[in-house]
C-alpha cells in the first residue's frame, strides 16, 4: 500500500491515543490499532507482544508511582519510594496510560506493516536526501528487527536456550537490537555505495492511487479530521484527579465510537478481496 493512506489513519490513531484525555479515546485508539495491525498481515506478533507488554507494564506501575486520588481501594505496607496507597483514580489513569502506549505501539506497527517500504524510503529520501543513515534507520530498523528476531531465536534455540521463558527471551533483546542496528548501518553503507546522497535523484514511474487506496485515504482523512477537530474544540477533556469525571459524555462517546468505526472500516477495506 502507498504510505499516504496508512500514514493518515495511523497518525489519527496515534494522536488520539496520546493527545486526547478522555479514556474512551485511547480505548478506541487501541481497538483501531489492533484491527489495523491484524489487517496488515503477518509477521505482527512481535508488535502485538511489545504493545501488550508495555501497556500492561505501565498500567501495573502507575498506581505505585502516582500519589493522587481520593477514593482509596487498598493501603499496603510502607515501602520507600513506592506509594502503596492505591486509589481508583490512579488505576483509571494507569489503565488509560497503558492503553495510550499500547495504541501508539500498535499504530506504529500497523504503519510499518501496511506502508510499502520502498515508497516510504523514497519519501524519506526527499526529506533527508543527504543522510543514508537517517533513511536506513527510519525505514529499515523495524523490518530488520522483525527479520532478525526470527534468526536470533533459531540461534538461541539451537544452543539449548529455553526461549519460551520470559527471562531468557528478555536477555536476547539487547543482542537483537545490536544486530539490527548493525544491519541498519550496513544497509546505510550499501545505500551510499549505490549513490544515495548523490547530486541528482529521479524516481522510477509509480502507479497512481488505486481505487482501494483512494477509499483508504478518504477514511484516513476522516479519522484525522475527527481527531484534530476534537482536539481543537476540547471535546475530549477529562479529569482523573482528585476524583474521576464521568467519561461517557455524548461528545466523547460519539467521537471515540466514530474513530473505532473508521478504524474498523479501514481494516475491512485493507482485507477486502473482491
Amino acid at each position: 500500500m502507498k504510505p499516504l493512506p496508512a500514514a493518515l489513519m495511523t497518525a489519527a490513531v496515534g494522536i488520539a491515543a496520546i493527545a486526547l484525555e478522555n479514556p474512551l479515546w485511547p480505548a478506541a485508539a487501541a481497538l483501531s490499532g489492533a484491527l489495523l495491525l491484524t489487517a496488515a498481515g503477518p509477521p505482527r506478533r512481535a508488535y502485538a507482544a511489545f504493545a501488550l507488554l508495555t501497556g500492561v507494564t505501565v498500567f501495573l506501575l502507575e498506581p505505585f508511582v502516582a500519589v493522587q486520588g481520593l477514593t482509596t481501594l487498598w493501603r499496603g505496607p510502607d515501602i520507600p519510594i513506592l506509594d502503596t496507597q492505591i486509589t481508583t483514580e490512579e488505576l483509571a489513569y494507569g489503565a488509560a496510560a497503558g492503553l495510550r502506549i499500547a495504541a501508539a505501539a500498535l499504530a506504529a506497527g500497523a504503519f510499518v506493516r501496511l506502508a510499502d517500504s520502498d515508497l516510504l524510503l523514497r519519501a524519506v529520501a526527499r526529506v533527508a536526501p543527504r543522510s543514508a543513515m537517517i533513511a536506513s534507520l527510519t525505514t529499515q530498523m523495524l523490518p530488520a528487527l522483525e527479520r532478525d528476531a526470527a534468526c536470533v531465536l533459531v540461534a538461541a534455540r539451537t544452543r539449548a536456550a529455553a526461549v519460551s521463558r520470559p527471562a531468557t527471551a528478555a536477555r536476547l533483546v539487547g543482542p537483537l537490537v545490536g544486530m539490527s542496528l548493525e544491519r541498519a548501518l550496513a544497509v546505510a553503507e550499501a545505500m551510499e555505495a549505490r549513490g544515495y546522497a548523490g547530486p541528482a535523484r529521479s524516481a522510477a514511474p509509480v502507479r497512481g492511487l488505486s481505487r482501494r487506496e483512494r477509499v483508504l485515504t478518504l477514511l484516513g482523512i476522516a479519522a484525522l479530521a475527527l481527531v484534530v477537530a476534537t482536539l481543537a474544540t476540547g471535546a475530549a477533556g477529562f479529569r482523573y484527579f482528585d476524583v474521576l469525571d464521568d467519561p461517557w459524555t455524548p461528545a466523547a462517546t460519539a467521537g471515540a465510537a466514530g474513530l473505532a468505526a473508521l478504524g474498523t472500516a479501514f481494516a475491512w477495506v485493507v482485507r477486502w478481496r473482491p
Binding site: S117, D118, R194, A197, G198, P199, A204
Partner: peptide, 17 residues
C-alpha cells in the same frame, strides 16, 4: 535496501538521476 527485487535494482538508478 528495498522490499521488492525490481525496486532494489532500480534504487541505484534513481539515485543517479
Amino acid at each position: 535496501v528495498s522490499s521488492g527485487v525490481l525496486a532494489e535494482a532500480a534504487f541505484g538508478l534513481e539515485n543517479l538521476g
